[in-house]
Design a protein around this nucleic acid. Structure first.
Lengths: 225, 225
DNA sequence: AAGGAAACATACTACTTGGTATGTAGTCAA
DNA sequence: TTGACTACATACCAAGTAGTATGTTTCCTT
């Protein structure tokens, strides 16, 4: 294939992936048919099956892409220099920002974790699911690690059962996928204001004092596209 | 009908409702067929349709029951004498306790709110949905009201956008439906420990100081069945 | 005892859906 | 130009599902 052909294919693939994410977001996995996704693109099943061998593969592709995005969103904070609380702030802000900016993908990501429910039948699907869960564990472990460091140096406080607190914390960061919906009049700044409030609540839940939160918030580089 | 017959029917109805809740919990609405629910009871469709005219009616019945339960769970705290923070603590503890104790119903409740997604077709279903949402608003309004009082008297602190903080707060209280699963070895006390941690995180997120949380926690009557 | 209603089970229909098999228009290299 | 290949669309099938119509058994009332 020529160079432009490769790029064209990649663009079509992305278009399909996003359409699938939007459909899965708005109707859920089971209620979304392949025809639904195709119609959403003004196409037919043929196009979908040309790129993905099955509905589950399409769904998995969306999930993995979402995982890529959320990793990328918290990478900077995780890698940065600074106190655990400060790093956690940046990781959280990146995560929440991604929840809002990549809403369709992130909705599928969060929703898909619930999908352990659909007792996935085939062996291959089970493997894909386990690989996905492994990535998720790695991701959560990042946050858990930084939280524990923050507790150790006294900036953060957790309840007797760390895992419960972590679940509550991560759940708060994921929260926007359930209630945020883009509006015509929201700007990058208005989105950032939402991110700030969510992160403030989450870190306050970990016992970080308000002064530190306000400080980190003001220090955080907020690049508005 | 005789008295015992009425009671028998009520018991069968409850049995069906619970079975439906469990199926909807584990597979979601779209992926749950009427036959699934029936098989879960060791019965057939006939029995389900004898009590409910349609799948959607069954689902709505589960949701309304869940709403009843969650209202009841926070009633005592809402009605009690005390500071806003103290009342909010009790309301939250009752809410979270209910999330854990009535997990199948509550999962459907939380999940069902997402179901605005399924663009409900018929007029009747839309009315049921709106009635349900109205109840939910009343419920959330209770919490919002007490939070606002707590902010007014200085015990609680929220971000610039109250609604975002409230969403995060309620989301935290609902969190257990996503990650808590009953285990063979959990007792009423171990469940209460989870409740305590979730409520601690949530109220800490609202800026309530740790001493107050610990105080309310110790004061809270914890009746272990 | 008899009649009827309640509480289901069984059988069936119309429709949807995941997946496949096949057709076809455009593209591109030789 | 032509043959192969890409990128779909169309037609089709088997399986599953919501809902209905019709038994059948048990129980309650009279």
């Amino acid at each position: 294939m020529s160079q432009t052909a490769v790029q064209a294919r990649s663009e079509r693939y992305e278009e399909l992936l996003r359409a699938a994410a939007e459909c899965f977001q708005s109707r859920g996995f089971a209620a979304t048919s392949i025809d639904t996704v195709a119609r959403h693109l003004g196409a037919t099943k043929g196009r979908v099956y040309h790129y993905f061998p099955s509905k589950m593969d399409l769904f998995n592709a969306v999930r993995e892409r979402a995982m890529d995005l959320v990793f990328a969103a918290s990478d900077d904070g995780y890698a940065m220099q600074g106190s655990p609380a400060e790093r956690l702030y940046e990781m959280s802000a990146g995560h929440v920002r991604s929840m809002i900016d990549d809403l369709p993908y992130m909705h599928v990501l969060v929703d898909g974790l619930q999908m352990l429910r659909y007792s996935t039948t085939t062996q291959f699907q089970r493997e894909a699911m386990e690989a996905h869960l492994a990535r998720r564990d790695v991701y959560e472990q990042r946050f858990r690690e930084v939280v524990v460091e923050g507790v150790a140096d006294g900036q953060l406080h957790v309840g007797p059962q760390l895992s419960v607190t972590i679940q509550s914390f991560m759940g708060t960061l994921n929260g926007p996928v359930f209630w945020y919906r883009p509006r015509g009049d929201d700007t990058s700044e208005s989105r950032q204001a939402i991110v700030d409030d969510v992160v403030r609540f989450a870190l306050s839940g970990l016992g970080l004092n308000e002064e530190s939160i306000t400080l980190y918030s003001s220090q955080s580089r907020k690049v508005f596209a």
